[in-house]
Amino acid sequence: MDIFTTHRGLMVTLDRANIDTDQIIPKQYLKSIRRTGFEEGLFSDWRRLPDGRQDPAFALNQERFRGASILVARNNFGCGSSREHAVWAISQFGFRVVIAPWVIRGGSRVPGFADIFANNAVKNGLLTVQLGEAEVQTIFEMVERFPGLQATVDLAEQRVILHMDEEESFHFEIEDAVKSHLLKGLDDIAITLEQDAAITAYERNHGMD
């Protein structure tokens, strides 16, 4: 798996909350038995008009966002289906980071990313960054104000730095396990197989030969 330490790149914004994995990669792309080639399907229903032409209003079709590698959206990104194809499509399209805000709803803190999506992202070296709602709003505004705005995402320091004349930076929280996994690019299965004796002992204690 790719190691993630720090990444600098162009940001693109999608002004939608609850972007579900059916939008990220529609079902017709899930029939493949391969692990590559999913970039074709990324947001395919949103990228094309009903007549099949590219929709010029959709951000990923716009020249100003060509080559973007940091995707910024609203709350609850990646909800819905567990399809890891959604993460594959985002990564294979060229994104290394997705940023979405946590929000307060009904007195509770609601995470920026759906659980299964966030899990799948870690396994593929895609960093999901949660910021506050106001911080993400700032990013949306700065991306409009400064064409070509780039950011650096520093995982070790847990910071997102917006490269404007007057730099602005935001701290983000991340689970220790996720952070070290990404920094080291670990192979989960290999690590777990090192616990083979413990697994075998568990099975023996539970009557499985």
């Binding site: 567990s82 399809r83 890891e84 194809h85 993460v87 659980d115 299964i116 899990n119 799948n120 396994k123 593929n124 689970e175 396990a177 989960d188 299965i189 690590i191 777990t192 197989l193 616990q195 697994i199 099975e203």
Partner: peptide
């Protein structure tokens, strides 16, 4: 609970999953 394909592979290989407690 539902899992992604990498986790499917992990369960096939180890019959376990590494999880944070919800």
């Amino acid at each position: 609970f539902g899992i992604g394909t990498s986790e499917v592979e992990h369960v096939l290989a180890t019959q376990t999953l590494r999880q944070s407690r919800p």
